[in-house]
């Protein structure tokens, strides 16, 4: 098993934390992991990429992820060109969207959608201008890919986040997990 997950969000939405929680969860299930990001001048609202690698054995690679097996999109308004790069038909794409967002027919990977922004609004997961969709999307990735169990994500979340915000975020993970839908045509 060698999975490369690329997260796309905006500065302030918590994509770094998503990458860490998923890595922590996979590590709890005995995997070797890496969680990192491309760091530049971090600015709220600017598109950001973060990465998680999950493997059965020690990972020697340190470069960014160019051909992801999984792409998770935290913000529906991100330009598609940013997150569709490097996807193959074996990849899985999980988009935060309130419906089946349309893609051109060349994007023939397995697709899922989850209305993470609505979940964030419901749970009041908001920091200034940004709705925080990171924990919801981590739950969604767990469901869509089966890479980690829901319980592992919750345990990892408790390890990574301050106790003060556990409750809301655990609810977000659960809703993300339960409200992730495959695209109608069998996910294609």
């Amino acid at each position: 098993m060698f999975e490369e997950i690329r997260w796309h969000g905006r500065g302030g939405q918590g994509a770094v934390t998503s990458a860490k929680i998923l890595a922590d969860a996979a590590h709890r299930e005995g995997k070797f992991v890496q969680a990192f990001a491309f760091y530049g001048a971090e600015r709220r609202g600017a598109p950001v990429e973060t990465y998680t690698r999950i493997s059965d054995c020690h990972v020697k690679r340190h470069s960014q992820i160019y051909n992801p097996t999984v792409v998770a999109v935290l913000d529906p308004a991100l330009p598609k060109i940013l997150y569709l790069k490097g996807l193959s038909k074996n990849s899985t794409l999980i988009v935060n969207s309130n419906k089946q967002m349309e893609f051109s027919s060349e994007i023939d990977c397995t697709k899922f959608w989850v209305d993470a922004t609505q979940i964030a609004i419901d749970l009041k997961l908001r920091v200034s201008e940004s709705y925080i969709t990171n924990t919801t999307m981590t739950g969604a990735v767990a469901k869509a890919t089966g890479l980690v169990k829901l319980e592992s994500v919750i345990e990892a979340l408790k390890n990574q986040l301050n106790e003060r915000i556990w409750e809301k975020n655990i609810e977000a993970v659960k809703r993300g997990y339960n409200e992730t839908h495959p695209y109608n045509n069998g996910g294609k």
Partner: peptide, 12 residues
């Protein structure tokens, strides 16, 4: 250690 590549990468 290399900046970011190790300093900001989480691994076991």
């Amino acid at each position: 250690q290399d900046a970011f590549i190790l300093s900001h990468t989480n691994a076991p």
